[in-house]
Design a binder for these strands. Structure first.
Lengths: 216, 216
DNA sequence: GTCTATAATCGGATAGAC
DNA sequence: GTCTATCCGATTATAGAC
């Protein structure tokens, strides 16, 4: 009937970490929510830190596999010399996140905030964990964007990818706030709608010619 | 010689909150860094929570005053019917942040991470504190952007402002990470350089025509 | 206003019975 | 695998001397 202890802990921890951050949640809060015993956390995971790693790994690994698969897919559809539309590269990176975010089976909306949290948490633990998981993905997507935007310098591409991540992370973390601020006007859409909205916004920015300053 | 206790606490708290988040820092760590006694925190501020509020207020109030002043300034320079260049509105919002960020007297680089933290911290405390401080600013800037981009719908403007905040917050919080990832290629510039970079990127995105979806 | 001392609680982790 | 009971350090907060 009930899911097994190990998974109940993972689910509760994910929810709570997403809501309050790593340092903001105690193991005791987690086991209370999970309806399990305190000692079981140390039995199944070795420590609070290892539990956090498990929480991240469960979502991040399939997510990044999806991203890389989408990129493989895109690159297969292109001839050697063609430059991919930047929208497609953006979509390969962003669509898997939004799809996961609406998949209740695999974490649903909770996962959105967890991703946002990963970029936001200031502790070394989370930052290193994240860097580790993302290096391969970052490398592959850097090359894809460099190919899609051949007129941009290396430095400029890095900066723009960085800004892209900022938009994604903020959307993951706080788009419910926008709903409030806008008085309900802005609602979260499904994965397709959200992806299209963000891709459209970012594509225009990514395509901007380099280095022209405008004065009013 | 030494600054007074109250301020020493505030300075230390700001630094530590910026580095590790609210829950990640204990009062004992703060007083150790400040070189003051534990009890003095409770004397000068009533609790850890009140201390956090004081930390935010010290920076946020002048920051938002500067933003509104920059906007006033811009609007004075325009005739009634003119639409301001979106770059100028972006600059009014963003330049004060980057200027504060390089002003050692008023918090310096520490302040950057503190701002990023505000948007990132998931606890209700920080979020409510922030919403409270930002409502007037949000209202004023919404109107300015609506004027600068008259062809966009209300909903679209809200979304784009939201994405803009994401870029800003991420830059505040994590641009040191970019320096690492890029192998030192991307360095943090001074306020002018950073503002120009972000404004340039965002202006292109803000100006994108509404609702056209692109397929590859 | 600043200190010492301490209260009262909460934190992660573990031992050992079942 | 799961539980109770407990260790023990850290935490916020306060009382009361100076």
């Amino acid at each position: 009937m009930a899911k097994d202890t190990k998974q109940r802990i993972l689910d509760a921890a994910e929810r709570l970490f997403a809501e309050r951050g790593y340092a903001g949640v105690s193991l005791r809060t987690i086991v209370a929510k999970a309806g399990v015993n305190l000692a079981s956390v140390h039995y199944h995971y070795r420590s609070k830190e290892e539990l956090l790693k498990a929480v991240f790994a469960r979502r991040l690994e399939p997510l990044n596999r999806e991203r890389l698969a989408a990129l493989d897919d895109l690159e297969l559809r292109l001839r050697e010399e063609q430059t991919p539309p930047v929208e497609c590269v953006l979509e390969a990176f962003l669509a898997p996140v939004f799809r996961l975010a609406e998949d209740e089976e695999r974490g649903g909306p909770v996962f959105m905030r967890l991703v946002g949290l990963m970029y936001g948490e200031s502790g070394d633990l989370v930052r290193m964990l994240f860097m580790q998981q993302m290096t391969e993905v970052a490398e592959r997507f850097y090359r894809a964007f460099a190919r899609a935007l051949p007129e941009l310098s290396r430095e400029e591409i890095y900066w723009r990818l960085f800004f892209m991540v900022g938009v994604m992370a903020h959307t993951m973390r706080a788009s419910d706030q926008l709903q409030l601020i806008s008085g309900g006007l802005c609602k979260l859409g499904n994965a397709e709608v959200m992806t299209a909205r963000v891709v459209h916004f970012l594509a225009a920015a990514m395509r901007a010619p380099e280095g022209c300053e405008v004065r009013g």
